[in-house]
Design a protein around this nucleic acid. Structure first.
Length: 551
RNA sequence: GGCCCGGUGGUCAAGAGGCCUAAGACACCGCCCUUUCACGGCGGUAACACGAGUUCGAAUCUCGUCCGGGUCACCA
């Protein structure tokens, strides 16, 4: 019998001459301190980097960081049919852009580092086959020659009988195939896959402790699932077992769509004589769609692709901080206590992760962003804004860099002060927000509030343009307005006006609104005094004159 | 349908049998401050899916119902 298994092994994988032992020695245990966690992200290059992948990467990254461990990347490109051009690059570069540092594996789209490689499954075929061959020798794996049609038939049959579908038990047609039969098929040139001869039974339960979901109980795997596809490339399940063992992953933190495969994985580790990693299954980020909660989808939702955030001009750090609030329920409290610390210093605990999927909350993202952007100095804003504009809004970019000092002065308004404004959340809001400060973008608009008469506005502006001085500080600036107010029937003090509104046409605050409209074309802007200083006296007077004519 | 997982305000959530008359954040609303907008301060609306059980006592434990999600490939 043993002899037959060896024969079978050589028949199926004639070119494999190494033993698993070889690889066990090639990839020795990592020399890491006690408690250090080795995590990874194993994306398959079938599309662009999307939110879920970024989120999983973050969780893995921070888990490794907070334990002094290693975070590496591995490319799962075992499905060549679905692969897209530039996929690896997009994902890895995307991770880098979001500040997710990579210790090992693919550190850029083309560059690999680390002693446990290759970090790309398509280049590990021989390794997988070596282990499969050993399994065949031990009678734990066998070839299956079923065609897609045959499999389909079995499934239909099972469905008709209301049975569980799958290749198991009596439905596992080739489970006990003999060497001679296999040989005959191969001589005919029939393609085959290698299946696991599962020793499990539906009756038995397996229990495992999930690092985020807690205790989970499931029926043991009894399916003879595919280990090696007919092209000799492994399925995810098998590659996962081999790679994470050989690369010494301690924690497999992945999307919770994998939870139902855990029995397969644990069984595989056991059969192969490997120590299984600790599993943690992350709940997906959801979205509300017509009142129904569903997993955010790459195809339907623009915000699923991380490019979306870049285009909108969300700062990568803001997105990461938002994601941290989703990942850890205690992150926001920590953030309040440590307003200036990097999220990397946060003590992350997998147990604090939500067990059910969180809805993507744009309000929250906006809030996180506004808070972070408001803390930036004008130089940093200048750098980030121009970076963004260069890529996504060329027209705006040209305007911004035409006169950098002027642009920086614009950005400094109400920013480089003790209590900065929380104004913009993403860079694509900036163009409109600052429009009136750039000639090319400024569109005058003289719509006065209802309580202000045109004649009053004009006489105020006529008076004002003679006394304006760019040297005034905020107080002096407003004092000028207050001086004019009584002359045209307005109260100098707001309190005065409120005490007896019938005596006045309005108050100094109303007049400042008139000025604001004349100079900026808007009712709402940051500090007008600063704006006028940045604009310069000539420009202000010009705009006031233009307003006088057009109001 | 089978197997898993989950259900606390609009959203994210705290909550481990009495500390719950259920925290906090975002959003929303109101007031105060204020030259506008913001910032800030104060306040407000709003939740334990449902039904049984266990218990002196249940958001918390058990069971059932309902609802939501995931998964059942030679895809990952």
């Amino acid at each position: 019998m043993n002899n037959n298994n060896s024969l079978m092994a050589d028949l199926l994988l004639p070119d494999i001459d190494k033993l698993p032992q070889f690889y066990e020695e090639l990839y020795p245990a990592r020399n890491l301190p006690e408690g250090a966690r080795v995590t990874r992200i194993a994306p398959s290059p079938t599309g662009y980097l999307h939110l879920g992948t970024l989120f999983a990467a973050l969780v893995n990254r921070i888990t490794a960081t907070s334990t002094g461990g290693i975070f590496y990347t591995r490319i799962e490109d075992t499905d060549k049919k679905r692969e897209i051009e530039g996929g690896i690059e997009d994902i890895i570069d995307g991770l880098n852009r979001f500040g997710i540092s990579i210790d090992e594996g693919f550190v850029s789209g083309t560059e690999e580092s680390g002693k446990y490689g290759p970090y790309q499954q398509s280049r590990r075929a021989e390794i997988y086959q070596t282990y499969v061959k050993e399994l065949i020798r031990q009678g734990l794996a066998y070839p299956c020659f079923c065609t897609a049609e045959e499999l389909e038939q079995v499934r239909n049959e099972q469905e008709a009988q209301k049975l569980r579908t799958g290749y198991y038990g009596k439905w596992a047609k080739h489970r006990d195939i003999s060497y001679t039969e296999a040989k005959a098929f191969i001589d005919e040139g029939k393609p085959f896959v290698i299946r696991l001869k599962s020793p499990g039974s539906e009756e038995n339960k397996i229990v495992f402790e999930d690092a985020v979901k807690g205790k989970i109980e499931m029926p043991e795997n009894d399916e003879d699932f595919v280990l090696l596809k007919s092209d000799g490339i492994p399925t995810y399940h098998f590659a996962h077992a081999i790679d994470d063992h050989l690369m010494h992953t301690t924690h497999v933190l992945r999307g919770d769509e994998w939870i139902s495969s855990v029995p397969k994985h644990i069984q595989l580790f056991k059969i192969l004589g490997f120590k299984p990693p600790k599993y943690g299954h992350i709940s997906p980020i959801m979205k509300l769609d017509n009142g129904a909660k569903r997993k955010i989808s790459k195809r339907k939702d623009p915000e699923a692709a991380v490019h979306f955030f870049a285009e909108q001009g969300y700062d990568s750090e803001c997105v990461i901080n938002y994601l941290m609030t989703v990942a850890a329920s205690d992150f926001e409290d920590w953030r309040r206590a440590n307003p200036d610390a990097s999220y990397k210093e946060f003590k992350f605990n997998l147990k604090k992760m939500s067990v059910s999927g969180a809805l993507f909350d744009e309000n929250k993202l906006t809030d996180v962003s506004k808070n972070m952007v408001s803390k930036l100095k004008s130089d940093e804003v200048y750098a980030k804004l121009t970076d963004w504009a260069k890529e996504f809004d060329k027209e705006f970019y040209d305007i911004l860099i035409k006169n950098p000092d002027y642009t920086k002065a614009v950005l400094a308004i109400d920013r480089d002060v003790p209590k900065p404004r929380k104004d913009i959340a993403r860079w694509n809001e900036a163009k409109d927000y600052f429009a009136y400060l750039f000639d090319e973008l400024y569109i005058p608009c003289y719509e006065l509030p209802e309580n202000i008469q045109k004649a009053d506005a004009i006489s105020f502006l006529e008076e004002y343009k003679n006394v304006y001085s760019p040297d005034d500080d905020r107080q002096a600036w407003f004092d000028r307005i207050k001086e004019i107010a009584p002359k045209i029937g307005f109260a100098a003090e707001t309190k005065q006006y409120k005490a007896s509104p019938e005596e006045f046409k309005g108050h100094a605050g109303d007049l400042s609104t008139v000025l604001r409209i004349a100079v900026t074309g808007r009712r709402n802007t940051p500090d007008l005094c600063s704006i006028m200083q940045v604009l310069g006296k000539d420009e202000c007077i010009n705009r006031i004159n233009a307003a006088i004519k057009s109001i």
